[in-house]
Design a protein around this nucleic acid. Structure first.
Lengths: 136, 136
DNA sequence: TCCTACGATGGACGTTGTCCAAGTCAAGAA
DNA sequence: TTCTTGACTTGGACAACGTCCATCGTAGGA
């Protein structure tokens, strides 16, 4: 994750302890935390960090393309640091756990021109739903 | 949409003027209203209808499988009455307009067993994103 | 027509997210 | 090293969306 910090510094980001802690909290695979979860974990490392700072930093990371924002359940948005490897998501309908998955083929290829209504289609977000081994 | 009312009556629903108005407001294709939009339209026909009633009724329609709940933008949930014809959604990244679309093939077929992590996968929700003719 | 259980009401409350004025500090300049 | 400055952080108010609950009203069967 330190390569993330270096990319950010290279883009002219002022490096603060708050931003460093948010980036550290987001490290890892299959990480899909809500903003409040990020804040809760950040507070254990930096007790004074404000909720607004976490929201600001997450928003900036999304704008820079370093983190992907998900809304799989209509509740709080979740933040996925695995932004440099295209993938989709598999969600347990019961417990809500999320896994990154990699379908085969191009998801846009199955949408015929007649079904595009003149749109310039550029991306497809897929949420697979089912029951995880623990809930089945 | 009156067939919807009859299906509901057949399931033992008590038919009230409020529920009838909510069902009427949801009639049509490519309809994807938020709960507050449904309430706003319902109020023009039945001025006393309460917001909580609209939320309750929409929740019941979703539980009965008569309406599909969408959260394409992390803001308010939207309600799609076209629940008996499987489809996906195409969203304009700029103005947010939503169209129902029908991709070819089975969306679950492209997720290999090795990418299922032991889940029992039962559905795939696809959101295609792009620019509509008006915004392009 | 009368009963009564189911549904509607509306206002309080909770969660998630945004905004802003004031204070703080990272990092380049001297 | 110290200074300077503008970007960053803070915390609290506010807004949007949704839920809950005690009370009242009424649909539909007896």
């Amino acid at each position: 994750m330190s390569d993330l910090l270096e990319r950010l510094r290279a883009r002219g980001w002022r490096m603060t302890s708050q931003r460093r802690v948010v980036a550290e909290v987001l490290a890892g695979d299959h990480v899909h935390l809500t903003a409040d979860e990020v804040h809760a974990r950040a507070v254990t490392r930096l007790p004074e960090i404000a909720r607004a700072t976490v929201y600001n930093t997450l928003g900036e990371l999304v704008a820079l393309g370093e983190v992907v924002e998900l809304s799989t359940d209509g509740r709080a948005k979740r933040y996925d640091p695995n932004a440099h490897h295209p993938h989709q998501h598999l969600v347990c309908s019961d417990c809500g756990i999320i896994r990154d998955v990699h379908p085969t083929g191009d998801p846009l290829a199955v949408l015929p021109p007649a079904e595009r209504f003149g749109f310039t289609v550029s991306a497809a977000d897929v949420t697979y739903r089912g029951l995880c081994p623990g809930c089945a």
